[in-house]
């Protein structure tokens, strides 16, 4: 079952790649701009959200995960979830200090 999936190559068009690249650049400039704006407690939250969107783009399109077997998505999901939990727990220190 797994075999056939890997062999059928999924072509992503150049325009998609280009689009993703441009959006990554755009998101980066948003990060830089936002860093200058005073958002108080939300600064970090916004920066992390933008970073998350960027990673999602890279992982799905550039790293092809969107077109892979579900098992890889499960694996990545577990790792991502662990990371999320680690971040949240860390904030119990920084927010309440």
């Amino acid at each position: 079952m797994q075999e056939h999936h890997n062999n059928e190559t999924h072509q992503i068009s150049y325009s998609t790649y280009l689009l993703v690249w441009v959006s990554l650049l755009a998101l980066t400039s948003i990060t830089v701009t936002v860093a200058g704006v005073h958002l108080g407690d939300y600064t970090l939250f916004v920066a992390l959200m933008i970073a998350a969107i960027k990673s999602a783009l890279v992982i799905n399109i550039f790293m092809h995960i969107k077109f892979e077997d579900p098992i890889f998505k499960v694996f990545l999901g577990i790792s991502g979830f662990t990371l999320l939990v680690i971040f949240s727990l860390t904030f119990f220190d920084y927010i309440y200090r």
Binding site: F92, D93, Y96, R97
Partner: peptide, 17 residues
């Protein structure tokens, strides 16, 4: 993965944490 800060109780982390 959820217990690491037990090495840091005396390092000045928040009481909640």
């Amino acid at each position: 993965y959820l217990v690491w800060a037990h090495h840091m109780f005396t390092s000045g982390i928040s009481e909640t944490a």
